[in-house]
Amino acid sequence: MREQILKYFKQDKLPHVFCPGCGNGEVMHAMAQAIDELGWDPTQILIVGGIGCSSRIATYTIFDSLHTLHGRPVAFAVGAKLANPNLKVIIVSGDGDASSIGGNHLIHAARRNMDLTLFIVNNYTYGMTGGQYSPTTPLGSFTTTSPCGHVEEPFSITDLLVGAGAPFVARTGTLYFNELVKLMKLALAKNGFAAIDIFTQCPTNYGRNNRLGKPIDLIKTQASILVPKEKYDLLEPGDRVGKFARGVIQDVEKPTFLDHYRACILSTRKAVHHE
């Protein structure tokens, strides 16, 4: 298995910069395994990252890689996909990158049903800048910018994406590695916008600030937060507080942006240009 995974990474650049116990390594591993199991041609994959710890994952892979601006990876990916629709475009972004500074790009790519795969590595904090609160930081949590406990409600990225019209939305965590690989394969194979909200651990900042113990203790907290979707749906609204559904949240078929656009080309071909 190790060789099978390692071949997707620039081995001369390893070990990576991530802290001991960080979940980014598991996400990298799961992604490489999913791609390997799908048997995709690595030369046709473009991996796009934003800014933040998890966005650096892109730069370690052997695929064409595009390390972009904070919050903008989805918008960069839109251009690359439209210019070369044969590319398999994967975006790796963090909770802050994707849903705070990049929130606008996120919802519009979902609404337009751009054929992109998005892995949101959600560690509830801005790790690279030292552990500030993000849109997914739980109410009451301690971060460097919420020293008295966080005063905002977090948001559910999957609810946001379902609302925006994404055809494939899923959630899981690094505690559920095999499920992560399975969901990644589904997301990658999906024709259309497919996103996974991946709960993960940041022991260096989030875990330390909240005295959550060793990395393994932090990972285990996912068991009490993430509830299988079938069970989550049966919970009373009051019992859902602080919990999130895991598994496939939405999976529907709908035409992509390019499907609609190509239909439009056929109709405009008949028009006469005023030149």
Partner: peptide, 13 residues
């Protein structure tokens, strides 16, 4: 912001 970001992705492709 998205417009120029998508231009960059498109140009590189």
């Amino acid at each position: 912001i998205a417009s120029i970001a998508s231009l960059i992705g498109a140009s590189l492709a």
